[in-house]
Computed example of a mutant assay.
Amino acid sequence: MGLPADPRSSPASVGTTAESGLIPDLVARIPWPRWALAATAAAAGTLLVAGLLCALCCCCRRSRRRKPRAREAVGLGSARGSTTAHLVQPDVDDVEPSPGGGQQWGRLQLSLEYDFGSQEIRVGLKQAVDLKAGDPGGTADPYACVSLSTQAGHGHETKVHHGTLCPVFDETCSFRVPPAELPQTALRVRVLDFRRFPEPEPLGELSLPLGTMDLRHVLEVWHRLGPPGTAEAEQTSELCFSLRYVPSSGRLTVAVLEARGLRPGPAESYVKVQLVLNQRKWKRRKTSARRNTAAPYFNEAFVFLVPFSQIQNLDLVLAVWSRSPRFRAEPVGKVMLGSRASGQPLQHWADMLAHARQPIARWHRLRPAREVDQALALQSRRRPPLPLPGS
């Protein structure tokens, strides 16, 4: 009789034992104690769980950050619009549309203050919004010109703000107006798009009769700009010339091109070009005369040698003179350029220095000769007297 078969030797029992003993066999082959294996497994599991939690937290934070940023941007924009409308001009939406039809020409913020003691009115140009684009690119280079209807040829020009339809001027100018002339005086503001040549393009105009405003208090309101030509046009005299400077050789070329808006009649006009160095007269030249025309064409160039070390102390003055057969020559107006200038003349001077060796041409409005002379503040060439002996 044979011995009974061992149940552990059957194929089924052998396969089950092999499968159940696979992991223990692998663990038994690792020459580590059981406590070290348990600690390693626990650390690996902890790191895996921590990595998954970190990934979930990062995803949640990104989604939460994106949503509040978008909401905050919308909220700030709406808050700014409501604040400006309610604090500066609550009924800005109730103002009647401008006479330019359905097209909008933008708005301008002004402040007016009249000093009865000095008889001066102070005009503060704050800012402008929603201006008309001056070029196909959808932008403009705006600046503003302020003048009074009773003071032809006298005005103020702000600096040019490049590439914007909402410039912040933040400039103040003053005009002397006696109280008796206030009812007949109108404040005119023109917003222009800066152009190097041939002339600036108007972006909008504004005319405010001072007689209808209560100037006993400081006024700061928004005004709608009208289309160019709505304000009464005033006869202004202008001069067009180009500047070119070469720093290496110190050659300053002034080309007098043409003038317009001069007095018509039997008179002859010419232009004087003068250099002022350190508030003292230095060099001067003169064009030939043109007769019987209100828009003379000169096209004459003058070359001056100005070292680069002296260019910052130099003032360039161009004066248009008119001489009639019965009267002596009188200055029609002057233009001063240099580091002490302001407005468009200062911008022209800066462009000449920034674009060396290139002629920069531009139209300039002539200012009263007395006003330019006061701005120059020329010093006398006379030497001071020698001190007396014993003094």
Rank of each mutant, 00 (worst) to 15 (best):
M1Q: 09
P4S: 12
P7R: 09
R8Y: 10
E19H: 13
E19D: 12
G21K: 07
V27S: 00
L37R: 15
T40Q: 09
A43T: 10
A44K: 04
A50C: 10
A55W: 05
A55D: 08
C59V: 08
K67E: 12
K67C: 10
L76H: 12
T84R: 13
A85Y: 03
Q89N: 14
V95F: 15
S98V: 06
P99V: 04
Q103F: 08
E120K: 07
E120H: 04
R122V: 04
V123T: 01
L125I: 05
D130P: 06
P136Q: 07
P136L: 03
G137W: 07
A144K: 01
C145N: 13
S147Q: 13
L165E: 01
C166W: 08
E171A: 05
V177Q: 01
P178N: 12
P178F: 12
P179M: 09
A180W: 14
L182I: 15
L182M: 10
A186W: 00
R190F: 08
D193V: 00
F194H: 08
F194Q: 04
L203S: 01
T212W: 06
P228A: 03
T230R: 06
R244E: 12
L252M: 05
A255F: 02
R260E: 05
G261D: 02
S269Y: 02
L275C: 01
R285T: 07
R285A: 04
S288N: 10
P296H: 06
D315R: 12
L316A: 03
W321M: 09
F327R: 12
E330Q: 10
K334R: 14
S342Q: 14
G343R: 06
Q344K: 12
A354I: 04
Q358C: 08
I360C: 11
R362C: 04
V372T: 05
R383L: 15
R383F: 12
